[in-house]
Amino acid sequence: MGRSHAGRNCGDYGEVMGMENPSEPPGTALTPDEWRGKEIFFRNFHTKFTYSWDTGVAIGHFLEALKGGKIVGRSCSGCNRVLVPPRMFCELCFRPTDDWIDVLDTGVVNTFSISYVNNDASRREQPLFVAVINIDGASPGMGFLHLLGEVDAGQIHVGMKVRAKWKPAHERTGAITDISYFKPSEGL
C-alpha cells in the first residue's frame, strides 16, 4: 500500500488472537481522505492500443457480402458442411474449403440472454437481447452472435425463427453491424 506504518497498531499475533472483541479487525482502518488524498500511493497508468487487422480472404469476403445485403458461407466437401462465418480451411478435416455458398438471412435462435443494465451498471430503458443465431442454409450449429429486436423479452425462446433486419444499403459499411438485428420472422 506504499505506507510502511499501515500495520503499526496491529500488535503481535498473540494479542490479535486474544482480542476482547473479535469482530473488530486488527490494524488501522484507512479513512476516505487517506484513500483519495496522496497519503496512499498509487501508480496510475493509461494507454491506448490501436490495431488494424487484415480481414483475409474468408472474413473479407463475408464482410463484402454483408455490405451487399447477403450472408455467405464456405462449403467443405470433406465433411459436407457449410461453414458460417466462412473460413478458408475446415477445422475438422484440416483441408482448404471448396466453394462460396450464399445462405439465407433467416435463422433460428440457438440461445439468448437478456440484460437490463449497461456496462457501468446503470439501468437500461430498453432491455438488450443478445442471441446466437443458427443461420438457415448453414450446417447445424453454424451461425453467429447478434442482437434481437422488434420483440418483447417474454416472447423470445430457443428455437424462435428470425430474419435479419438490414440497415439501408447506403448505411452499410462491410461490418457485422450492417445487420441491425434479427427479428421474429413468423407468428410467435
Binding site: W53, D54, T55, G56, V57, A58, I59, R87, M88, F89, L92, C93, F94
Partner: peptide, 25 residues
C-alpha cells in the same frame, strides 16, 4: 494484407505437415 493471421498459420502448418506426411487430426 491478403491473409488473416489464421490463413497465414494454416498455410505454414499445411506445408509443415505435408513435409512429413502428418495428419494433424
Amino acid at each position: 494484407p491478403s491473409q488473416s493471421y489464421k490463413e497465414l498459420i494454416f498455410d505454414a502448418a499445411s506445408r509443415a505437415y505435408a513435409e512429413c506426411s502428418v495428419n494433424p487430426r
